[in-house]
Write a protein that binds this DNA or RNA. Structure first.
Lengths: 172, 172
DNA sequence: GGGTGAGTTCAAGAAATATTGAACAGAATA
DNA sequence: TATTCTGTTCAATATTTCTTGAACTCACCC
């Protein structure tokens, strides 16, 4: 709802974490981006940092540069991986995992549709069926109105299902 | 002196509000729908009720059938009107306002894009400009990498701007 | 086995959002 | 003008969602 123009301000005692202005700007952009998508801020921070990082980053580097907790880092990376937005890469002789951002828009959009939108559409299908079973008998007053409106819901639903592949294709 | 017959009006519990199964189902669908869009539940409830109502409903009818507060009702209707999803209709000789749902998908999508998405895209434009101003000098190591990634952000942004009209058109 | 490094889990606390209701404002009646 | 009817505003409260950090698991090394 609302749009709090959050400007990511660098902590003043940030002597420690020190993100560059470029990094801060990119992270800020993604933090605001994921907001629109309904994802938590930490997801945007992590993705933003990886996006603008020339090298793969380890779990600890992410955590300490962003100054977020282990829990958020772990949870955030998990979700980003499930979205296909972040990938673990092999680094020779390293024990830890290293992560890089996936930057193919098609893949990002595909992951978001698969993980976040499609499940909702599916639950919508069930709800719609339930609604249809509650349509009043044709003899009831307004029966036609109800039938029309419920029918329109079905049309919207189908249209939305058709729209998703189009979006994916367009963003290729 | 006669005491007025004080009828204890038992207000509250479902005996009073009683939504039909059909209404409940439709409201449920919209409540879950607006969730995906990042709008509050009450918005979904109000729109759902109006959507499946054969007659325009007054402020008080909405409030009492949904059992939500005056504040939520007022605020919800305000937002729905700003989105173009609800319209006040004239009812002869009535003092109150009466409301109906707008059911043209194109209009709904257009309103959402205009009110919720475009402002974010605009703020993205500003943020992008700020980022570009922080690109390191070409002599810096990784300068090309940064330039590429920031360039890609610009491409994504433009593509998204192009996508919105396509979505609107498709959902006509 | 015992110790250490790396990451996950999840209950509790913090932060962000939504809802409520009482005070208010304006318009239509009386 | 006073009164009632309608709806709005907004500070306080409730609810939801995110983040934290301590306890835990698992794998590796000594």
């Amino acid at each position: 709802m609302e749009m709090p123009q959050t400007q990511l301000i660098l902590e003043s005692d940030a002597s420690e974490s020190s993100l560059t202005a470029l990094e801060t700007g990119v992270i800020d952009l993604f933090v605001n981006g994921v907001r629109v998508l309904g994802l938590p801020k930490s997801i945007g921070e992590i993705y933003g940092l990886l996006y603008i990082s020339p090298e793969p980053l380890s779990f600890d580097e992410i955590l300490s540069r962003l100054q977020i907790s282990k829990g958020s880092t772990s949870q955030g990376l998990k979700i980003l991986r499930s979205l296909g937005a972040v990938r673990a890469v092999y680094v020779a002789g390293a024990r830890r995992d290293y992560f890089v951002a996936e930057t193919e828009l098609k893949k990002l959009v595909g992951g978001f549709i698969r993980e976040e939108l499609s499940p909702h559409l599916d639950s919508g299908t069930e709800r719609l069926e339930s609604i249809q079973s509650h349509l009043p008998d044709a003899s009831e007053p307004d029966a036609q109105f109800f039938k029309d409106r419920v029918g329109k819901l079905g049309t919207w639903h189908k249209r939305t299902e058709l729209l998703l592949p189009i979006i994916r294709k367009f963003l290729t």
